[in-house]
Amino acid sequence: MIYWKLLWSFLQVGLFSFGGGYGILPVIQQQVVSENHWLTLKEFTDVVTISQMTPGPIALNAATFVGTKLAGPLGAVVATLGCSLPTAILALIIGHYYYKYRDMSLVKGVFEGLRPAIVSLIATAGLSILFLAFFNTETFQIHTLPNIDWKAVVIFGACLLIQRWKKTDPIYIMLGSGAVGVIAYLVL
């Protein structure tokens, strides 16, 4: 039955995609393109592109897209649950122990060691997005320097200033920068 197949495939996507971001693409590709032939490579590339244009993790977006295509809304529900329930249950278990033992000095020490690293991880992800916005590539390369997108630089600078001074809800920054994007890239 197709529902079982969808569930099984996306269970694997949910359980074997570590690290997040683009690292999980090969896992999804293997399930939906190579093994089950549910999508062509071209369709899979489209899903990745749409994921970049819509909110939500790529795995969940792919689950909805593939599920809908194969078995309608119910298929999408099955695939979505398949890739989120195992990790949700794991999060519950780990969360339970974290909140039970987080006042223990050893656990405290572990997380004190982790926090500065997490800030750095957020920084590396932020830099990739920054370079994508400024140079259209995820890493800095000297030869792309002349192609710098000055409009993006101005939007970035303005947003950062507003955010640091006004401490607004980041959602407003996102909505605002999207609106400014229309003016900057279509009107000007």
Partner: peptide, 18 residues
């Protein structure tokens, strides 16, 4: 165009948190 603008905005809110 919306997404292009938002990309710069997202980079800014992440930079702020960092």
């Amino acid at each position: 165009a919306v997404l292009k603008g938002m990309q710069a905005g997202i980079a800014a809110i992440i930079a702020d948190v960092v």
